[in-house]
């Protein structure tokens, strides 16, 4: 990394911010996945409701998405393969932002299915696209941060010595 020498205060603060970002993003992913995983059919429906993917692809995504969310979420929370996990999480969130924006632009009236459910709105319920997009975009930013400044405090990456770069001129970050 080529960042100019950060101030001492930033040097202590940055890893902690990463940790918080990891926990929030990872925790959200775990919750989202766990709420979906018991009902694969619902997950398939929620994906299909976006009318974005062809049927077979929607099926595959519906089956795989909950477990992907959980695995990536766990990796982030424990801080293992932090950078890879953060990049995947950020891309996932970005895809969700895109999907919701797509649904909105196409005048669909669906529930985002973000935390389970089959994508259908309850009677009298209105879509909450803007809120969903803002939330997911915030999570994209957290993912980007964690990818830029991995692995943060309390990360398995450090404990396992996975963080030392080829040129070991970083101050011992591994606790």
């Amino acid at each position: 990394m080529t960042a100019s020498q950060p101030s001492p205060m930033a040097r202590t603060a940055i890893p902690w911010v990463t940790t918080v970002a990891r926990l929030v993003l990872g925790g959200t992913l775990i919750a989202a996945g766990a709420l979906k995983i018991g009902n694969p059919s619902e997950s398939v429906m929620a994906v299909s409701a976006y009318q974005l993917l062809p049927e077979t692809l929607a099926l595959m995504v519906g089956y795989a998405l909950p477990i992907v969310e959980i695995v990536v979420g766990v990796l982030l929370v424990v801080g293992l393969m932090t950078r890879v996990a953060a990049v995947i999480a950020a891309l996932l969130m970005f895809a969700f932002v895109f999907g919701i924006a797509w649904a909105w632009a196409h005048g669909l009236r669906i529930d985002c299915g973000c935390f389970g459910g089959g994508g259908e709105l309850k009677a009298g319920q209105d879509p909450s696209y803007l809120l969903d997009i803002l939330r997911d975009f915030g999570l994209v930013l957290l993912g980007a941060w964690a990818a830029r400044f991995p692995p943060g405090r309390f990360a398995l990456d450090s404990a396992l010595g996975l963080t030392v770069s080829a040129h070991t001129d970083t101050p011992e970050e591994a606790a």
């Binding site: 099926l59 089956y63 477990i67 293992l80 393969m81 890879v84 996975l162």
Partner: peptide
């Protein structure tokens, strides 16, 4: 270490998706 973790993660995803299907 890195590849092991990666393989385990990918296997978990595959297994989970297969189970769901």
């Amino acid at each position: 270490t890195y590849s092991t973790a990666g393989v385990v993660a990918v296997a978990a995803v595959g297994l989970g998706a297969w189970y769901a299907a």
